[in-house]
Amino acid sequence: MPNLLVPAEDGAAVVACSTCRASTDAKDDAEGMRGGARLVAALQAVQASDPRYAGIAVQAMPCLFACQDFCTIHVRGPAKIGYVLGRFTPDEEAARAILDYAVLHAESAEGQVPFRQWPAGIKGHFITRTPPAGYVAQ
């Protein structure tokens, strides 16, 4: 049986579902590419274009099991509350909003970013929060 888990950088990261649907109605976009793969590519391009995002790893993973919410990502960091967000348009604008939020998340003490600091592009996209290993949130 092959290993299910693959080692990844243990730091601030955006884990993006690489197999997500492009939208509620379509698996692939007009060019035959999955929405998740398109979002991963946008995240990687935006991250590479701006040194502000150097401390945030962009990691791809097939299926985050949030299929009804297409184009999903998980923002995480060591000993921090993580967040799963979805329903993004897989483009540069969404990628920049996600990475802007990930920077704020990484700078926070426990993963909680005040609502007033949230980039507009992530509001309404939260699906769930996840506790770090060994903790639950209050």
Rank of each mutant, 00 (worst) to 15 (best):
G36H: 01
R21S: 00
T128Q: 02
R34W: 00
A120N: 06
F115L: 10
V6H: 10
R116K: 05
P62Y: 03
S108W: 11
V75Q: 07
P114Q: 07
R38F: 01
A12F: 05
L104F: 02
D91G: 15
A48K: 13
L4S: 08
Y53L: 13
R96A: 15
T24P: 04
Y135D: 07
Y53K: 08
A54L: 01
E92F: 08
T128D: 02
P119Q: 05
C20Q: 00
A102R: 07
R129N: 12
P131R: 04
Y53N: 06
E93F: 09
H125G: 10
E31M: 11
M33T: 12
M1Y: 09
A42E: 13
R116P: 00
Y101M: 13
Q59A: 14
I73M: 13
A22R: 00
L5H: 09
T24E: 14
R96N: 14
I98H: 07
L5E: 10
G32Q: 14
A16W: 04
D69C: 02
I81L: 15
R129W: 14
T19Y: 02
Q138H: 11
G77L: 10
F70Y: 08
H125C: 14
D25T: 15
A45Q: 15
R87T: 15
A30H: 11
E31S: 15
Q68C: 04
C17S: 00
V15W: 04
G86Y: 02
C67V: 01
L43I: 12
R52F: 06
K80H: 14
C63K: 00
P132I: 08
G86L: 07
A106Y: 03
A120E: 12
D25P: 07
P114N: 05
A22Y: 01
E92N: 11
G11D: 12
G121M: 10
S49T: 11
A37S: 01
L5W: 08
I81G: 02
Y101C: 12
T19Q: 00
S108C: 13
R87N: 15
C63V: 01
P78G: 14
A109Y: 10
A16K: 04
A26R: 04
D69T: 03
A79H: 15
G55V: 00
P90M: 12
A102L: 08
G11H: 07
V84S: 04
Y53G: 03
M1E: 10
D29P: 02
A97F: 11
G77D: 09
P132H: 09
E93M: 14
C17K: 00
Q47L: 05
Y101W: 14
V136H: 03
Y53S: 02
K123N: 06
I56Y: 01
V113Y: 05
G82M: 12
V15D: 03
E93R: 14
M33F: 03
G36Q: 00
Q68L: 03
D91H: 14
A102F: 11
A57W: 06
A133N: 08
V136P: 02
A26C: 06
C63A: 00
G11M: 07
V46H: 08
A133W: 11
Y53C: 06
A94H: 12
L99F: 10
